[in-house]
Write a protein that binds this DNA or RNA. Structure first.
Lengths: 232, 232
DNA sequence: ACAGAAACTTGATAATTATCAAGGAGACCC
DNA sequence: GGGTCTCCTTGATAATTATCAAGTTTCTGT
């Protein structure tokens, strides 16, 4: 498998410390595939056959139980998902589907575990990646347990705004229904939460959100580095 | 440091594959300490100075934000906590306090990271431990997003009952206030949730809970291996 | 450009969960 | 043994969030 996407995959912190030979061995059996939007890539409960890496587009991780469904996370380029299941040779805890047309690299699980055993540097990089994943979920969990719906939305907007360069405007990276589910509320409630935030300078125009009074929005949101910061 | 607790610490999957020399090096600077109940061991936001291992008692991991507080997890012997922060040399995302008088082993972070670099087997064990931690939080998060308060309680009771040998009776391993917070509800609500479960054979007598109609309780709870099972 | 579908919004209402206030049970201490 | 304290429970009420049922807008494909 050869492709112009390889360098960007290689540059992931998960891979950039490993030997060329190991990386090549890992990619030997990998394949890059383009999927249309709304295609279910993996289903929770299935054995973890591949490690997935999103190189273009966007993938939604979600979970189902008892007829309900909830978005757990959104994976944007360049990001991996379900690493833990692959390493443990366990079943997936979450399902995944493309939120839009997406390019995804699939590396057979056995191969990942094999190189993990052989390449010490790769094993160490995996530790860092897993630690980051763990801390991300802990933050999500704190967000849900310690904040109201409106607060979760406000903080998420502030976060997206930062990621997009703090121009005073942001574009939602996925549709509102998915955002609602990610934030743990219904679409109707998200709509109302946006209305609640209007007095705090939040202007909604489709997927474009204007933040015209960040000071006051932050007073309401009370952002917390131990929940909202990607780095800490 | 020598102690009768060492063998049980050594038997943790995190340590049982490592060299004797590495283990000894790790324990060289470690110290075992007994803390009274309700003592705050670590505070979120502080740098991760130690890896903690509970050998006796019970430790509560909790988080605070904006004047609110929520229990994130309970760590029982023999279990570790805040491994991710130690490895990343980052600040703690959660605070910890003893739920009862507890014996805790503290290993200086630097030492953990040092041995992690030197002992390949230890590094691999850490991956497994981290993957397990990650999957546990994902399950907690699913539990909270996909279930109502009563369902969360019902499933937790079923889980505790299994852990305690399915005798028809279980003993709550910590007080109801903490259980309520862990399950993401108020103490008042937990009390009412118990009442709601009475028609399903749940009898409350202080810390002792009788489960007299598990079939019907399971019909309500709809346990899911991808949320409730410790192993998967 | 237009029809149809999907996504989003709004209003009305219901369910769930939280808050406040008070009472009761049990543990602990002198 | 009585008092005090903490924890738990219960009742009344309020706030939050979800559901149901239209509308409205936006997107898509032809």
């Amino acid at each position: 498998m050869r492709s112009s996407d390889l360098p960007q995959v290689r540059s992931l912190s998960l891979f950039d410390d490993m030997d060329d030979s190991s990386f090549d061995a890992l990619m030997q059996t990998a394949y890059l595939q383009v999927f249309p939007a709304q295609l279910e890539l993996i289903t929770e409960g299935d054995p973890a056959d591949f490690l997935y890496i999103v190189t273009e587009g966007c993938v939604e991780l979600f979970a189902r139980s008892n007829g309900r469904e909830s978005t757990m996370a959104m994976v944007r380029p360049v990001g991996t998902f379900i690493l833990a299941a692959v390493l443990k040779d366990a079943v997936y805890l979450m399902s995944a589907r493309t939120a839009q047309r997406s390019k995804v690299l699939l590396i057979p699980s056995e191969n990942v575990r094999d190189i993990f055993q052989k390449d010490e540097q790769f094993a160490r990089s995996i530790v860092v990646e897993l630690a980051n994943c763990y801390r991300s979920v802990v933050k999500e969990h704190k967000d849900l347990k310690l904040r109201s719906a409106v607060e979760r939305l406000a903080n998420r907007l502030i976060r997206m705004h930062k990621q997009q360069g703090e121009s005073g405007t942001l574009t939602l990276p996925f549709d509102k229904r998915t955002l609602a589910s990610l934030l743990g509320m219904t679409p109707e409630n998200l709509s109302r939460a946006f209305n609640t935030l209007r007095p705090y300078g939040v202007d909604v125009d489709g997927m474009t959100i204007g933040l015209n009074d960040i000071k006051s929005l932050e007073t309401l949101a009370k952002p917390n580095v131990l929940i909202d910061d990607q780095l800490t």
